[in-house]
Simulated scan of single mutants.
Amino acid sequence: MEMEIETTFTPLASLGGGVLIGLSAVMVMGLFGRIAGIAGITQGAVGGVVPISAAPRDRDWRWAFLLGLLAAPLVIMAVGGAVTQTVPQNLFAMAIAGLLVGTGTALGSGCTSGHGVCGLARLSGRSLVAVATFMTAGFVTVFLIRHVLGGL
């Protein structure tokens, strides 16, 4: 049984989102001299609450960045836009996926935004390898879940 998955084509919204991601990456680098990788930003922000070795002292902008990520959909909804999100019903699979992503982020010394957006823009060889690795893992995972396991 094939799963039918509908994907809405939204070129203008996608372009706008890409421009905002790029702009935020440039601003974080220009203003703070840091890479706009969500994993690193989150670790630095949480380092002020949970003792983490070598936690950076520049937590204010990190918390502002994270709060902005959370506030953005609320602002869109407040001005009348629609924000839809689908979440799988299998909470166990989501927990395993979250642990795997966290482990990969730690092993890869960064996340998709740090390596994919910022690292590739800086022509980092390490980021190129990281992006190739997580994209391949993503392709294989989607193929296995959709076509081998039947959609979990």
Rank of each mutant, 00 (worst) to 15 (best):
residue 2 E to D: 13
residue 46 V to S: 01
residue 2 E to M: 09
residue 66 L to I: 15
residue 143 F to S: 09
residue 57 R to F: 08
residue 103 T to G: 06
residue 73 P to C: 14
residue 51 P to H: 13
residue 72 A to N: 11
residue 93 A to G: 08
residue 148 V to W: 12
residue 37 G to I: 00
residue 150 G to C: 10
residue 104 G to I: 00
residue 44 G to T: 01
residue 142 V to P: 09
residue 102 G to E: 07
residue 7 T to E: 08
residue 10 T to R: 03
residue 99 L to A: 13
residue 37 G to S: 03
residue 86 T to Y: 05
residue 87 V to L: 13
residue 98 G to D: 01
residue 20 L to F: 09
residue 115 H to P: 03
residue 130 A to M: 10
residue 119 G to Q: 02
residue 97 A to G: 14
residue 35 I to A: 01
residue 114 G to P: 00
residue 59 R to W: 02
residue 127 S to K: 10
residue 11 P to C: 00
residue 28 V to F: 08
residue 68 G to T: 14
residue 6 E to C: 00
residue 18 G to Y: 11
residue 40 G to Y: 00
residue 104 G to C: 01
residue 17 G to A: 11
residue 42 T to R: 11
residue 81 G to M: 12
residue 143 F to L: 10
residue 136 T to I: 10
residue 147 H to A: 03
residue 82 A to D: 15
residue 102 G to R: 10
residue 55 A to N: 03
residue 142 V to N: 15
residue 82 A to K: 15
residue 90 N to T: 05
residue 139 F to Q: 07
residue 138 G to A: 15
residue 134 F to P: 06
residue 81 G to W: 13
residue 140 V to W: 04
residue 5 I to S: 02
residue 35 I to F: 00
residue 132 A to W: 04
residue 70 L to S: 05
residue 52 I to Q: 06
residue 85 Q to R: 11
residue 66 L to S: 12
residue 106 A to Q: 13
residue 32 F to W: 11
residue 113 S to H: 14
residue 57 R to E: 15
residue 121 A to V: 04
residue 151 G to A: 12
residue 61 W to E: 06
residue 52 I to K: 05
residue 40 G to C: 02
residue 132 A to V: 14
residue 91 L to M: 13
residue 69 L to Q: 11
residue 127 S to W: 03
residue 49 V to K: 03
residue 77 M to N: 12
residue 35 I to S: 01
residue 148 V to G: 12
residue 14 S to Q: 07
residue 42 T to Y: 02
residue 99 L to S: 09
residue 1 M to T: 07
residue 127 S to N: 05
residue 102 G to D: 06
residue 135 M to H: 04
residue 100 L to P: 06
residue 69 L to F: 14
residue 96 I to T: 08
residue 41 I to D: 00
residue 50 V to D: 00
residue 126 R to T: 09
residue 39 A to R: 11
residue 76 I to H: 10
residue 40 G to V: 04
residue 120 L to W: 05
residue 72 A to T: 15
residue 99 L to V: 13
residue 74 L to W: 14
